[in-house]
């Protein structure tokens, strides 16, 4: 009898396969979907993007081989900005916002480069991968260099192995004590380990690609480039920006690899004094280091083992002076140090 019922209005299509419930974000995320999307785009381009440009430009000053003086000058300028903390918080929030939504958006799609290996599609997938890589990279970068985190000891970090300290330095050179001194730290890290160098290379390429490709897609999403021709032309501009930023990075990278630690001023040395787990010094010339420190009335003191432990160092007590080889690149750098220091 059921077969011969009258054709009453039906709400669902009879016989149609049941629709799968699709994932959709509840509440405010779906309510303000479009605004969030646009803010995501904007937060990537403007605060983060502009900061990255500035950052890379500053870092590029490393190329001058002046022991980071130009670089240091720029850094100090930045640190002299009033209410820097607020700017930093704003930046971190922008990054967190961009990254959070970005991760969610990333997993809403599913790359298919294997089947459709068109250039644009490869960049679609790369945009997502580089976003994730950039996020990991930026986190470690900030955490280790800015916040001076020693991440659970897993990050066998050469950045600030607190094997030694220079007592009294903070009183005598308060300005220096608060300066992150990223240049020598990073430079040393890059020279110290191929892996760190590689991480920086991959990380920065990812950041720069993500930003310049993001700029290209944003122009379409916002409706600025609407013809295929315009998309193409803007694409060339974005490639140009990518190349320019990579040149900045290249300058910083090369500059860092060629950084000459021994040529630093005693004050810089005091502030930069560090060593690494296996007892390798950043400085070639131990005697000169000691002389330099003495000239400003300082002396490097080995930190107590437990202190070192806390910060992740191996507990072994090491002699303060144990001359050993510095990374090869540093040797080269040392050779050319004099030429570049002008």
């Amino acid at each position: 009898m059921t077969a011969a019922t009258t054709s009453a209005p039906v709400t669902t299509r009879p016989g149609a396969p049941k629709p799968k419930t699709r994932t959709s974000v509840a509440g405010p995320l779906s309510q303000h979907h479009f605004v969030l999307r646009r803010l995501h785009s904007l937060s990537g381009i403007v605060p983060v993007g502009l900061f990255v440009i500035g950052h890379l430009f500053t870092n590029a000053q490393m190329i001058w081989q002046d022991n980071g003086e130009t670089f240091q000058h720029e850094v100090e300028f930045i640190h002299s900005i009033p209410a820097l903390l607020f700017i930093e918080i704003a930046l971190w929030s922008a990054i967190a916002f961009h990254a959070g939504l970005g991760l969610y958006y990333t997993f809403s799609g599913k790359g298919n480069v294997a089947a459709y290996s068109y250039g644009d599609n490869i960049r679609y997938s790369l945009q997502r991968w580089t976003g994730v890589i950039a996020l990991v990279f930026i986190f470690f970068h900030i955490a280790t260099l800015r916040w001076r985190w020693d991440i659970l000891g897993l990050w066998d970090t050469p950045f600030y192995y607190k094997g030694y300290s220079v007592p009294g330095m903070e009183e005598q050179f308060p300005a220096l004590a608060n300066v992150p001194l990223s240049a020598p730290l990073t430079a040393y890290a890059l020279q110290y380990s191929v892996w760190v160098a590689l991480l920086y290379l991959v990380g920065v390429v990812a950041v720069v690609f993500h930003w310049s490709n993001g700029l290209w897609t944003a122009a379409i999403s916002w409706g600025l480039t609407i013809s295929t021709g315009a998309m193409k032309k803007w694409g060339y501009v974005c490639i140009g920006l990518f190349v320019a930023l990579m040149v900045f990075f290249g300058a910083a990278f090369v500059g860092s690899l060629r950084y000459d630690f021994d040529a630093m001023t005693p004050q810089q040395k005091a502030a930069t004094l560090f060593t690494v787990g296996d007892g390798q010094w950043a400085f070639d010339d131990k005697e000169r280091l000691e002389t330099d420190l003495a000239s400003i009335g300082m002396e490097a003191v080995l930190l107590p083992p437990e202190d070192a432990d806390e910060t992740g160092a191996a507990g072994d007590e090491r002699p303060i002076v144990e001359p050993s080889e510095t990374p090869g690149v540093a040797d080269d750098a040392a050779d050319h140090g004099g030429d570049a220091a002008h």
Binding site: G109, Y118, Y124
Partner: peptide, 11 residues
Amino acid sequence: PGGVADCGNAQ
């Protein structure tokens, strides 16, 4: 949700 802003421009 699912609108034009979700397009990732893979083209």
